[in-house]
C-alpha cells in the first residue's frame, strides 16, 4: 500500500500526540485526583492554604500520623451506612438487567421475525418513549404509587426502571436478532418445532453476544439513574446515587464532605472495572445503532 504517502510529517505527529495526551489528562485525571484525595482530610483535599497539601497530605499527617487515611470511607460506609445503599444498588441492577433482558429478548425476537407493518409502528413508538426524559414521567407515577402504598419499595423502582429500559433494549436486540439468519429458526420450524421451541433451542444458544452487550447498557441505565430512584425510593431503600445526593445536602453543613468524596469514589470503582472488562462490547454497542443508520 501507499505507505509513504500515508506517513505523516513529524510536526503533525507531534501535534496529534500532544493533543491525545491533553485529552487523556482531561478525561482521566479528575478520577485519579479524586481517588488520591479521598484518602486525605478535607482541608487537604480542598486546600485553601497551599494546593500541594492535596498531594503530600500535610494536614492528614498532622491528624492521623500518616499521609493517608480511610476516615472518609469509614464515615461513609459504616457511620452513614453506605453499604446499605450499595446493597440496594446491587439488587436493583441485578433484577433490572435480568427482567429487562428476559422480556426484551422475547419482544426483540418477535419484532425481528415478523414482517408485518405494525412492527415499524411499534419501533417508532419505542423510539418516542426512548426520547422521553424519565423525570417527566415521575409525576405520573407518584399519585397511584402513594394511593396503593407502593411508593418507596425496591420492586417498584425495579419495575419502573425495567419499563424505561425497554425501548432501548428492544431497538438493540431487534437489530441484533436481524443479523441472525432467519433460516436457522425456519428450518427448526420445518422440523416440527413451534416458534417458541425454535427460539428456545436454536436462537437462545447463539444470542449471547448481543444479549451481553444490551445487558451492559441496561446495567448502566439502572446504575446511573438518579431522577427515578431519588423520587421513588424511601430513605432506607435508596440506591447509591440518590444516597450520594443526600450526603451533599447534609455534609456541606456538617463538614463531612469527605464522606461524599469517599462514597463517590466507591461508586465509581464498579464502573471502572466494567469498562475494563467489557470495553469491546461497550464500543460495539455504542456504534451498533450509529453505523447502521
Amino acid at each position: 500500500m501507499a505507505a509513504a504517502a500515508q506517513r505523516k510529517p513529524v510536526s503533525l505527529k507531534v501535534a496529534s500526540l500532544v493533543f491525545i495526551v491533553i485529552w487523556l489528562m482531561v478525561a482521566a485525571f479528575p478520577f485519579f485526583w479524586t481517588l488520591w484525595g479521598s484518602f486525605k482530610v478535607e482541608l487537604d483535599f480542598f486546600s485553601i492554604a497551599d494546593w500541594t497539601n492535596a498531594l503530600t497530605g500535610d494536614l492528614t499527617k498532622e491528624t492521623y500520623g500518616r499521609p493517608f487515611t480511610g476516615a472518609g470511607y469509614y464515615g461513609a460506609w459504616v457511620q452513614e451506612e453506605f453499604w446499605r445503599a450499595a446493597l440496594n444498588t446491587f439488587i436493583v441492577c441485578f433484577f433490572v438487567v435480568v427482567t429487562s433482558l428476559t422480556i426484551g429478548t422475547l419482544g426483540g425476537y418477535a419484532l425481528s421475525r415478523s414482517g408485518h407493518n405494525y412492527v415499524f409502528w411499534l419501533l417508532i413508538a419505542a423510539l418516542i418513549f426512548r426520547a422521553m426524559p424519565p423525570i417527566t414521567l415521575v409525576s405520573g407515577y407518584l399519585p397511584p404509587f402513594f394511593q396503593w402504598n407502593l411508593w418507596g419499595y425496591l420492586p417498584t423502582a425495579i419495575i419502573v426502571l425495567v419499563a424505561i429500559n425497554q425501548p432501548f433494549t428492544l431497538w438493540m436486540l431487534h437489530s441484533f436478532f436481524q443479523k441472525i439468519p432467519k433460516d436457522l429458526d425456519e428450518s427448526a420450524k420445518v422440523d416440527g418445532c413451534t416458534q417458541f421451541q425454535a427460539f428456545r433451542f436454536v436462537i437462545i444458544p447463539v444470542m449471547w453476544p448481543g444479549v451481553i452487550t444490551t445487558g451492559l447498557f441496561s446495567f448502566l441505565l439502572a446504575y446511573n439513574d438518579f431522577a427515578v430512584t431519588a423520587m421513588l425510593l424511601n430513605e432506607q431503600n435508596r440506591t447509591m446515587v440518590p444516597k450520594i445526593a443526600a450526603f451533599l445536602g447534609t455534609t456541606y453543613t456538617e463538614g463531612n464532605v469527605m464522606f461524599a468524596v469517599a462514597a463517590v469514589v466507591s461508586a465509581t470503582v464498579p464502573l471502572f472495572l466494567l469498562v475494563m472488562v467489557f470495553q469491546r462490547q461497550i464500543v460495539s454497542g455504542l456504534t451498533a445503532g450509529a453505523v447502521k443508520g
Partner: peptide
C-alpha cells in the same frame, strides 16, 4: 486511550459532575 476516553461518559452523570465540581 479508548479505555480512558470512555470513562467520562460511562461514569454516573451526578458522580462525574461532582468530581469535576470539587476540582
Amino acid at each position: 486511550v479508548i479505555f480512558f476516553s470512555l470513562l467520562p461518559m460511562i461514569v454516573t452523570p451526578l458522580i462525574g459532575s461532582l468530581i469535576l465540581f470539587w476540582m
